[in-house]
Write a protein that binds this DNA or RNA. Sequence first.
DNA 1: CGAACTGTTGAAGTTGATCAAGTCCGGTGG
DNA 2: CCACCGGACTTGATCAACTTCAACAGTTCG
Lengths: 233, 233
Amino acid sequence: MIAVPTRCIDCAVRDVALCASMSDDELRALSDMGRRRVLPAGQVVSWAGEPSSSCASVVSGALKATASTADGREQIVGLLFPGDFVGQPFQDDASLTVTTLVATDLCIYPRAGFEHVVDDHPRMERLLLERTLASLSQARGRMLSLARRSAKERVAGFLLELADHTGESGPDGIRVRIPISRGDLADYLGLTIETVSRQLTLLKASGVLGVARGGRDCTIRDRARLEGVAGPQ
Amino acid sequence: MIAVPTRCIDCAVRDVALCASMSDDELRALSDMGRRRVLPAGQVVSWAGEPSSSCASVVSGALKATASTADGREQIVGLLFPGDFVGQPFQDDASLTVTTLVATDLCIYPRAGFEHVVDDHPRMERLLLERTLASLSQARGRMLSLARRSAKERVAGFLLELADHTGESGPDGIRVRIPISRGDLADYLGLTIETVSRQLTLLKASGVLGVARGGRDCTIRDRARLEGVAGPQ
DNA sequence: CGAACTGTTGAAGTTGATCAAGTCCGGTGG
DNA sequence: CCACCGGACTTGATCAACTTCAACAGTTCG
């Protein structure tokens, strides 16, 4: 871990993270408490079952939040990107394991102190509430996908989400980079590695998708057809 | 719909619904706005896609919140019981369809007015935040189940949840009443009616579960064994 | 009684998981 | 530079679980 002393005002996510709800002056309370840390890929930030002692904002990088059964079956219940909030305030034990997927820069607050700031800053509390409601909506949408959509629909839907979120239009379609490994993608979509791989191969074979070597960089060549594969909605 | 004029102070869920966060005096604001309505079973309270114009507290009865694909596949993403909050504040369009499962008594507020009350009552906002965080945790647990647990585990797990929530110990085990139809249970567990029925039959055959005629009233004869079937956690 | 539901059971069909080889690729060291 | 190694990904064959389709039984209520 490397400490990264920085002023909040200069922070890359000053306007998108929860801090966006606070004036520069108000930020002092958070700022004094927050500790910037750069973690390498694959580092566990919080273990399910352990006391949840801190919260954080993602400044750069990416993380996964996983729930798992006692016998090791795993499900990624959320992916976290810059500006997202990490942690479970008002809850004594963490129910999720949070792990960095790539080198990740976090702004970490002690949970108790963070809760205190929330107490004192209604606008931040409101923002947290709205974000939590949005996460809940998203989680419910994913419940529907996990329970009712086919493997093909899930994979296609994921690519479309990526396209909407980080896609860049290139010469022969929309270029997207799958930000996680096949294994993590399988854990996210509720499938196995093999099934994910096969579905991507099918999309490639049908000409809808181009997959560059390495398997991470893709080109959506025919969005309309991909939407057809993804099924309704 | 039948109007049920009542004073909040006498309300059955005065101490468990969101109103528990408010003093008797403060309740006046909500009280003036709230409208009690008794709806029959099978009534849609809010349609996915339509503007979400109201919120409510469940006073008695039960409802289901469903998400569905455009081609009609359905998933129940939440069951709602007395004291629970219904609705999606701070969101203009409903993403879920909410339907009564049995005759249900609701205390309905116009959404705008409700949001206003939340603005003015930090304790209510905090309670709403905590409940939303709890719902999110629950939704994530269900994502894990829907994606990774077998039909057998889901059915057994559901019965155990019921036992913990509403079970009464009887002479030959824990008596539980399945509060919904096989169809709704299937929609909740992410299975088909037939699979749910078969799993219940298997549990009955193995002596773990007693099922009375009608199929709704069950007796968990061997909780330990049922927990074994439900799998880890 | 009989109609309409709701639930159960059976047989066949699919989907995706599992098991088992491969292949591709980046990195290391001879 | 190339051989080798290990991890990530792909592909193939088989298998089990769950769905689908279809018929039947039980319950409720006119």
